[in-house]
Design a protein around this nucleic acid. Structure first.
Length: 561
RNA sequence: AGACUCGUGAUGUAACGGUUAGCAUACAAGGUUUUGACCCUUGUUGUAAAGGUUCAAAUCCUUUCGAGUCUUCCA
């Protein structure tokens, strides 16, 4: 679908409307404003794609702004991780900004508000203020400090800034309306004292502005035209606008906050606290564990930036509650990897096959197409010999005709190689099949063009020559939670829904072309799925992660019977 | 319950008073295939409910029902 045909989402409609009403297109500006207090996750990815996508669509700048107003939780490490993730997704920000860049301006404006009689220093405890705040149905009562003189407010605020007071002693509040039906308008706090070192401003400040006071003004300073955030900030809009009203100049762009529904992905959790528990309780192996919904986790799992962007595009954006099935994401990664991932062969659950009429000690190298979806991908050679591995699931002594794979007396095609026929098999003392003896048709070589090679055989198996196979650790991932919405149960902890089989580690036997695979390389193990090379890989040991399996209609057929 | 936001198939989204409510996924049937993949064809399920306005309503109005958000010196 071309960009121009795509239907508009409600935010694009708003922008189009603004443009129609005379807002200059070249003044469109967006921003992505993460707080650097943790790792970005798939929900942020949607927001990134939304904001940067609008930037691309309207050829407008997009700032990356760190909302770093709470030094207690923020660290440089997160700033770096966030920048890496945004870059990895393939976006370029116009300028890198920090709310902390605006501390002085924000302070000056706060002084201005005090002078205007629109802000005051409150010297009560937080408990006192909380009780005075009232409830949604009951109006609040005004603080006894609400009518302090401008001079006194100025002096106290100056004292707060200079470090004369300990934390909690005083706060600066906006003087709005203690009986507003919107709790946020009941004299919200603008500044609190925090004797904490900030990762950028160090000890320059010991008062820090609150989110509401900071965000709109930062948007204004940066001249962001459309400030997009999630629905939980809808109620904040009134305050956002009130704060803007105090400082906006007519000739400048007045930012407009609009809210969209956060994207919820099934079978996962994204709250920082919950993710942290998964890490701390050892359910996963870190923030970038391939089962984590963090962008770093998705990256390590083998997801491509394109697939995540396409995912964000297809799910779109709206205002209603949603729970997006993770299979939509999986479809996107299969769709992309199908086009770009080289095909290789690897066996994860090996069963030995001996081709009895193939000469002992002989080997030959057969042509194998790298990617049928991509003509430019070329081909490689894979070794064939008398003893090979196939998957255990691909052989049965006997089976009905729905089973296209190898069974006694029947033929299958070995991908890129010959047609073989199962003659007999041997079992161990427990009755487990440990080896299959086959014969091959020497004239049936793939691509040879002989009559025999053109023979239609229903099943095609992947395989690997035992002698040439290289071993690798293969990590098979499944969804982390068995419940589609693990953290929405009132009476149950989300940890109760952990999938005990979310990780299975096996030894895989791979074709030798994989010997020099590099970290983050992505391939398709034919008939199995898409895999990528994990950073745990060393010269001694190859490690693969399964990104996602192939669609498996055989599994469905089996389930039915 | 006060305010705010929102209800379109199994999931996500579109239609901005005017075709048989579209698209993607999912599911199903068939075709193709040296991957039971991909691809192709066809099919299946939907406007929360009730009223009203209108020649015409998913769309506008009213009511009901349902969901979410808000009551942190977090963002």
């Amino acid at each position: 679908m071309s960009e121009s045909e795509r239907s508009l989402n409600f935010l694009e409609h708003i922008i189009e409307e603004d443009l129609k009403n005379g807002f200059p297109k070249d003044q469109l500006r967006f921003r992505f404003p993460p707080e650097p207090n943790g790792y970005l996750h798939v929900g942020h990815a949607s927001s990134i794609c939304l904001n940067f996508g609008l930037g691309l669509r309207y050829n407008a700048p997009v700032n990356l702004r760190f909302d770093d107003t709470n030094p207690a939780k923020e660290e440089q490490e997160y700033v770096d991780a966030i920048k890496r993730d945004v870059e990895w997704l393939g976006y370029e920000w116009s300028t890198e900004r920090y709310a902390s860049d605006y501390f002085q301006q924000l302070y000056d404006w706060a002084v201005f508000l005090i002078k205007e009689g629109k802000a005051y220093v409150d010297s009560q405890t937080s408990e006192e203020m909380a009780t005075q705040k009232g409830s949604p149905t009951e109006p609040g009562v005004e603080s006894p400090f609400r009518d302090r003189s401008v001079a006194e407010n100025l002096a106290l605020f100056e004292g707060m800034k200079s470090g004369d007071f300990e934390e909690g002693k005083h706060v600066l509040r906006a003087k709005i309306d203690m009986s507003s039906s919107n709790m946020l308008m009941r004299d919200p706090i603008m500044y609190r004292v925090l004797h904490k070192e900030h990762h950028r401003t160090n000890t320059d400040w010991c008062i820090y502005p609150m989110y509401d006071w900071t965000h709109g003004e930062s948007d204004y300073i940066e001249q962001v035209s459309h400030s997009l955030c999630t629905l939980e900030f809808a109620m904040h809009r009134e305050l956002y606008d009130w704060f803007l009203d105090q400082v906006v100049k007519d000739e400048k762009v007045r930012p407009k906050q609009r809210e969209f529904a956060r994207r919820n992905l099934s079978h996962t959790v994204v709250s920082k606290r919950k993710l942290l528990r998964l890490v701390e309780e050892g359910v996963v192996n870190g923030w970038d564990d391939p089962r984590m919904p963090t962008i770093s986790g998705l990256r390590r799992r083998g997801f491509t930036p394109e697939s995540i962007r396409n995912f964000a595009d297809t799910i779109g954006i709206a205002k209603r509650e949603n729970l997006i099935d993770v299979s939509l994401l999986e479809f996107q990664v299969r769709d992309h990897l199908n086009k770009v991932a080289p095909r290789v062969m690897g066996v994860l659950n090996p069963l030995k096959v001996v081709i009895t009429n193939y000469p002992e000690g002989e080997e030959e190298w057969l042509d194998a197409e790298n990617n049928p979806e991509d003509d430019s991908a070329g081909s490689r050679q894979v070794p064939f010999s008398r003893e090979i591995y196939i998957e255990k699931e691909d052989f049965r002594e006997e089976a009905n005709k729905k089973f296209f794979r190898l069974k006694l007396g029947k033929e299958v095609r070995l991908k890129n190689a010959y047609i073989i026929k199962a003659e007999s098999c041997t079992k161990d003392e427990n009755g487990n099949i440990i080896e299959v003896q086959c014969t091959y048709d020497p004239k049936s070589k793939s691509g040879s063009g002989t009559e025999e090679s053109l023979r239609k055989v229903k099943g095609t198996l992947h395989w690997v020559s035992i002698e040439h196979a290289i071993e690798a650790e293969v990590r098979l991932y499944d969804r982390l939670f068995t419940d589609e919405s693990p953290d929405t149960h009132k009476d149950k902890d989300f940890m109760e829904f952990i999938n005990p089989d979310s990780l299975q580690v096996v030894t895989g036997y791979l074709e030798p072309s994989l010997k020099n695979a590099q970290i983050e390389d992505r391939v398709q193990f034919q008939r199995l799925g898409y895999f990528c090379v994990d950073p745990d890989t060393s010269p001694e040991k190859l490690v693969f992660n399964r990104t996602v399996g192939l669609r498996d209609s055989w599994a469905k057929i089996q389930q039915k019977s």
